[in-house]
Design a protein around this nucleic acid. Structure first.
Lengths: 150, 150
DNA sequence: ACCAAAATGTAGCACAGGCTACAAATTGGA
DNA sequence: TCCAATTTGTAGCCTGTGCTACATTTTGGT
């Protein structure tokens, strides 16, 4: 291992490897973020109206319906959803499980943000982007922190 | 169904428009995230060793050097960096300003995470993904919260 | 001074996730 | 019933961000 370091400045940079790993993790989180959003949204639509139509999904996400359909195809490829032509989208068991996990995490993030003083509306908006990058360790810490403040 | 008919079980879904806007925001944040990472890293490298070579940037980010070079080209297109062939990368004034903002935000996010009990190493890793999605409002709240706990 | 290794740059591919445009199926109202 | 609007699906394009392979330039050791 070439410890070719010359990090002799400011608040100490992490090692190359450590830093690369962090970025790698952030990139991989990003690649699942969209699927998580779709699954959670589909779950919500199913719960609140009994069906999840591609057009509704598209409108909620603010994308063209063709985009939604393409991503739903990816959900199916990954075993998270099922659908038949002109019949709406449904979640597999794996999809439901993911949706539940994501929803829980979302609430926890919003609650944590509000607990530290972020206004409710900002908290909701920010959580949408933040939630996908919160590790289990952080999530556990959030839970403890919230429990401790009633 | 006006302002706050929120029951404990199911938090009402937001309106289509509101939700679409949130996702749109998250998507646009994502598109600037990579540039922010590059700019901050380049700034760190310049500060700690006086130069930022594409290969170093690539190694730190954990990507192939060709990928780094391509993204650096984008930084130049966007007026954040300058570089001449075989001569390393430098930041424009805009790039420096962005780097400073990003670095500050990064610290604040890490500190906030640790303040609510997230272990230091998790905090660093999570912050890498989270920071790009933290609004100014949330940032201000973080600052206040941290100030209040000395 | 030279040549090999390292760094840099270029070209071309893949895939994800946007889009528009068009085609086909379904649904609802007259 | 039947036609028009809506919904759904398909095709093809663009951009961003990865990659590998190869070409070129710079650098450093002998």
């Amino acid at each position: 291992m070439a410890t070719k370091s010359k990090d002799l400045a400011t608040p100490a940079m992490p090692t190359e490897a450590a830093q690369a790993q962090r970025f790698e993790k952030a990139r991989s989180a990003q690649s699942t973020a969209l699927l998580e959003d779709y699954v959670e949204l589909i779950s919500d639509l199913l719960a609140s109206s009994g069906e999840a139509r591609p057009t509704d999904v598209a409108r909620r996400l603010g994308v063209a319906h063709a985009t939604a359909i393409k991503t739903i195809a990816r959900l199916k490829r990954e075993g998270l959803a099922t659908s038949r032509p002109y019949r709406g989208v449904f979640l597999t068991e794996a999809g439901k499980a993911l949706a539940d996990r994501v929803r829980l995490r979302h609430r926890l993030v919003v609650d944590l943000l509000m607990a530290v003083g972020v206004p409710a509306d900002s908290a909701e908006v920010d959580a949408e982007g933040i939630e996908h990058h919160v590790s289990d360790a952080a999530l556990a810490a959030f839970r403890d922190f919230l429990a401790q403040r009633g």
